[in-house]
Simulated scan of single mutants.
Amino acid sequence: MAELVPEIGPLWQERHQARLAARPRKRAVGTGAKHRLVFVDRLLATLVRLRHGVTHDVLACWFGVDRSTITRAIGEVRPLLAERGCTVNPDVRLRSLADVVNHLGASGTTGIVDGTEIGVRRPAVGRKDRDKFISGKNKQNTVKSMVVTDGEGSVLWCSPARPASCADITHARQLGLVRLLAGEPAVRILTDAGYQGLGAQTGGRVVTPPHRKFKKNAPDWDEEMHERQRKAPSSRRIRVEHGIAHRKNWRALARHLGCREHMSDTIHAVAGLLSHQQTADLTSTRQS
Rank of each mutant, 00 (worst) to 15 (best):
V38M: 12
G194N: 10
E261N: 06
A186K: 04
V143D: 07
G30A: 09
P160K: 05
A33L: 13
V58K: 11
G176S: 04
D150H: 02
L104R: 01
A280I: 12
R27G: 11
F39Q: 02
C61V: 06
I189W: 01
R49I: 01
A21H: 14
S288F: 11
R23Y: 11
A82C: 01
F214A: 14
V88I: 11
K26V: 00
R93H: 08
A232S: 10
A252V: 07
I267L: 11
W62N: 07
V187Y: 08
D281N: 15
A98C: 10
C86M: 07
E224Q: 14
A200Y: 11
I238C: 06
K26Q: 11
H262Y: 09
V48L: 15
G204I: 03
K132A: 15
D281R: 14
G30L: 12
L20N: 07
G136L: 02
G136D: 09
S235M: 05
R23W: 09
E241K: 09
G203R: 13
G53E: 01
D131T: 02
W250I: 03
G183P: 02
A22C: 12
R237L: 03
P209C: 04
G136V: 01
P24M: 11
T279K: 01
L198A: 02
D66L: 13
S154V: 12
D99L: 00
R255H: 11
L11T: 10
V77F: 07
I8Y: 08
G136H: 07
H256R: 05
S159V: 03
D265F: 03
R49N: 02
G115N: 04
R127D: 13
H35V: 10
V155E: 01
L59S: 03
D129P: 04
G9Y: 04
R236N: 13
T55V: 11
H16T: 15
L4F: 09
T71W: 02
A21F: 12
A280P: 08
T110I: 10
R212E: 11
R127E: 14
A22T: 14
Q278C: 05
W157F: 09
A200H: 08
L274G: 04
A182G: 08
H276Y: 09
A21M: 15
L47R: 02
I244F: 03
S107R: 15
D131M: 12
Y195T: 04
R205T: 10
R286V: 15
